[in-house]
Simulated assay, not measured.
Amino acid sequence: MSDKNNPAEPFKKALAEASKTLANDSELSVTYSVDPPGMSSEGIRLPQVTRRMTRDEVLLARGTADSYALRRKFHNDATFGRYAPQGQMARDIYEAMEWARCEAVGAQDMPGTASNIDHKIANEAERRGYAQIREASEAPLAVAAGYLVRHLASGRPMPKGAENVMELWRPFIEEQAGGTLDDLKDVLKDQSAFARFSRQVITDLGYGDQIGDDPDQEDPNEDEEAADDEQADEIENEDQQQQDGENEDASESSAEQSQEAQDDAAQAQISMDDMADMETGDEAELPDGQAEMEPPPPMPTSDADPNYTVYSG
């Protein structure tokens, strides 16, 4: 049978379009499945709505769609990751409080979403048997913290099973973190401020050793490294200046030596020129009429035997 004849299809299409509008994301992918609902960076997966379109199916689909769409609209993954604690319990509390924040902010702007999400919370509480829990130690603290944040922020009563879990832990939470919770409404619409608020609540509840380093605190190692780099640059500049000075001195010395060599060469040339002038002067001072003496002629060549010796008897 085609989808056109499925009475649930018009509702599913309308809910998908409403979810895109609520999330302020026209490209949001909305699917329906018998698998557990969930969300990713691409879209959301909602509970299946059958042809029967029972009241519970419709209310659960609406509540899940509104919860995911509000998370999509008011939540930033980068901010969430920046402040996310490292320990498991601390992270569970942090996650539950952030879900509650997004739903509470949406309820302030669009009150109709609150009643839809109540059905989602009631369904989860029923499936997990929260109404039957009698001791706080049997109830999840993180879930209770999220419920309490939603209750305090919206002023709405929680569904039966959820209220039971919240009330089991409420005395402990308010005793340990009551002073911090007083600031809840001041930080609700600012995710970064709320993340810091959540980390403080987690610390108040005794899990401060799981929150990790404060991302807003400057790393002293980075400052030390920056100072070392700056000092190294200064030393390098000083060395360069010293080297430039030495090169300049060497250049000046070389120039002086070159000038001295040129002066010596010039002086030597002057001395040679003076000597030449003196010789020329001597020739010019010969007496008039007296010719310059010629060198004596060479001895005549003898025809005698070169080995001849004078005989002496």
Rank of each mutant, 00 (worst) to 15 (best):
E234H: 00
R156M: 13
V201N: 01
A78Q: 13
P287N: 10
P7N: 12
A261L: 13
D66W: 13
L148G: 04
E236Y: 02
G129D: 08
R199E: 04
A195N: 07
A136W: 03
A291F: 06
A61V: 06
E174K: 09
F74C: 01
P85M: 10
E230A: 01
R51N: 09
P287S: 12
P215D: 06
E42N: 14
E167F: 03
Q231S: 08
E57L: 04
F194V: 03
D249G: 00
E138D: 15
T31P: 02
D288M: 06
M166D: 06
L188T: 03
P300T: 08
S251R: 03
D183Q: 11
E57H: 05
V30P: 05
L15Q: 05
G87N: 09
V143P: 00
D263E: 14
E17Y: 07
E175G: 13
T180V: 13
A193T: 08
M299F: 09
G289F: 10
M39E: 13
T79E: 12
N116A: 15
E135P: 00
D223V: 11
E174D: 08
E9K: 13
V105G: 01
M278W: 13
P296E: 11
D282H: 11
R51H: 02
N24Q: 14
W99D: 15
E218A: 15
E9A: 09
D25C: 02
P215H: 06
A276E: 13
T50V: 00
S137C: 08
E175L: 08
D282C: 08
S29G: 10
H75C: 09
S2W: 09
A265T: 04
R134T: 15
Q132E: 14
S29E: 15
A114R: 07
F11V: 11
E279F: 12
I270T: 10
P215W: 05
V165A: 12
V143M: 07
D56V: 06
D219Q: 07
T301P: 02
P7R: 12
A122H: 09
V143E: 12
R62W: 08
S198L: 04
M53L: 11
I173M: 14
D209E: 11
S271K: 14
L60N: 12
D264R: 15
D213A: 14
F194P: 01
W99K: 12
S19K: 03
Q200V: 10
S33W: 06
A90N: 05
V201A: 02
A104T: 01
T21Y: 01
G43I: 06
D214V: 08
M89I: 14
I121M: 15
Y68R: 01
F80Y: 15
V34G: 01
A131Y: 08
L184N: 04
S198N: 06
T54K: 11
N164A: 09
G313L: 09
Y207W: 12
D186Q: 14
Q290P: 00
Q240G: 03
A107W: 02
E236G: 05
H119I: 00
E224K: 05
A90D: 03
D288S: 12
I121K: 05
Q231I: 01
E138W: 05
C102F: 03
R150C: 02
T180P: 04
L152M: 15
S67E: 14
A16L: 10
I44L: 10
D92F: 10
A104E: 02
Q108E: 13
Q240Y: 06
Y83A: 11
A96V: 00
E27C: 04
K73G: 00
D263A: 13
G245H: 04
P171V: 10
N221T: 11
K120T: 00
E95Y: 04
